[in-house]
């Protein structure tokens, strides 16, 4: 990369940092417990809107994995999400009534929070329906992974989205608060993912899975991106630029090996297709606050009325990370 290209990349990073700086004013603190953050603490960042039902299991899952402190941006919830979060002992909450779309789908807000609180920490940025699975996650806490990444001088950890779905109609089994969503959405597509390197930012662009198969079979290019870099040893000069798909500086996106080897990676199990989703799809399609004016949600709203069952006989039932590693979806790399 030449000097000019490199400088333009720097300008791009600056642009995103400025956006975050401007949009910090949209955030109002609800409960700030960030004084509890100390050296070595692992942090989680998330934007929520009306996710009261999903939160108890989300917090339980990540507490068990070893997240020490959660930082939430509440986008104008009306279902008690904000109050619930403010009551949790390890959570700090900010709130904003402003547009999710205009803040680059929450990324400006989170970039700001990470810049102020994430420096020097391992930061996990996930939505409340995303559950991190990494090699050995059943026997080793997240801290074991981050310690190993530190020792290996690796700054970022890739984990693609793995969309999970139930067998039978999506709304047949109602989701109860506190329940493991993967008791219902236990299935996934194991071998229909498509990859391309993004030459500008160096990341892999991943598409496929159930969403490409069921909703974008005629327009694959529009299928949602599944590549994510959710876990980063944050420094204040870093910035996410497109959801958690891409970061700057670009080196952080190299979570795959272009030379034939395998790098250690995980997945984010995506508990999207639950009963909660069917109502949500219609609402979000109306609100148009999501990526590409929620075109994706419109596709779901249409698709889910007609053919309800996403399951097919080749669907794979989720067992554990070892299964994912054998299927080639994740890799232990040289972590043994």
């Amino acid at each position: 990369m030449g000097l000019i290209a490199s400088y333009r990349m720097r300008l791009r990073r600056r642009y995103w940092r400025l956006r975050a700086l401007r949009r910090r004013r949209q955030l109002t603190v609800v409960k700030d417990r960030t004084r509890a953050i100390s050296y070595g603490t692992i942090l989680a960042f998330s934007t929520v809107r009306n996710e009261r039902t999903r939160l108890p299991y989300f917090l339980e899952y990540y507490r068990k994995q070893g997240i020490d402190h959660f930082l939430f941006v509440d986008n104008d919830s009306v279902d008690g999400t904000r109050e619930y979060l403010a009551d949790q002992p390890d959570v700090s909450v900010w709130t904003t009534p402003d547009s999710y779309a205009k803040s680059a789908f929450g990324i400006d807000w989170l970039n700001w929070l990470m810049r102020s609180h994430g420096h020097g920490h391992w930061c996990l940025t996930v939505d409340v329906d995303e559950f991190l699975v990494y090699p050995f996650c059943d026997t080793r806490p997240l801290r074991a992974l981050t310690d190993w990444l530190d020792a290996s001088s690796i700054r970022s950890f890739g984990a693609m989205l793995l969309d999970m779905y139930p067998k039978g109609p999506v709304n047949a089994q109602p989701y109860r608060e506190g329940q493991n969503p993967f008791e219902i959405a236990a299935w996934f597509d194991s071998g229909n993912y498509m990859f391309e390197r993004n030459p500008r930012f160096g990341n892999l662009w991943i598409q496929g899975g159930i969403r490409a198969r069921a909703f974008f079979a005629d327009a694959p290019k529009k299928a949602p991106a599944l590549n994510k870099v959710p876990l980063v040893k944050w420094r204040r000069e870093f910035t996410y630029i497109s959801s958690t798909h891409i970061l700057l500086p670009r080196g952080l996106n190299l979570t795959y090996d272009p030379a034939g080897g395998e790098k250690t990676t995980g997945v984010l199990l995506h508990a999207k297709f639950l009963s909660l989703f069917v109502e949500r799809a219609a609402e979000e399609a109306q609100r148009a606050e999501h990526y590409r004016a929620a075109g994706e949600y419109r596709a779901y709203a249409d698709g889910l009325e007609g053919s309800d069952d996403l399951w097919c006989k080749w669907s794979e039932r989720y067992i554990n990370w070892r299964q994912l590693e054998i299927l080639g979806l994740i890799s232990k790399g040289n972590w043994a």
Partner: peptide
């Protein structure tokens, strides 16, 4: 085996961990 996986990877696998040029 771990070193081999990191160095050579599983032949024929294209994934988020392994995308050979």
């Amino acid at each position: 085996k771990a070193n081999e996986r990191r160095g050579q990877g599983r032949p024929g696998l294209y994934s988020q961990a392994r995308f050979p040029s």
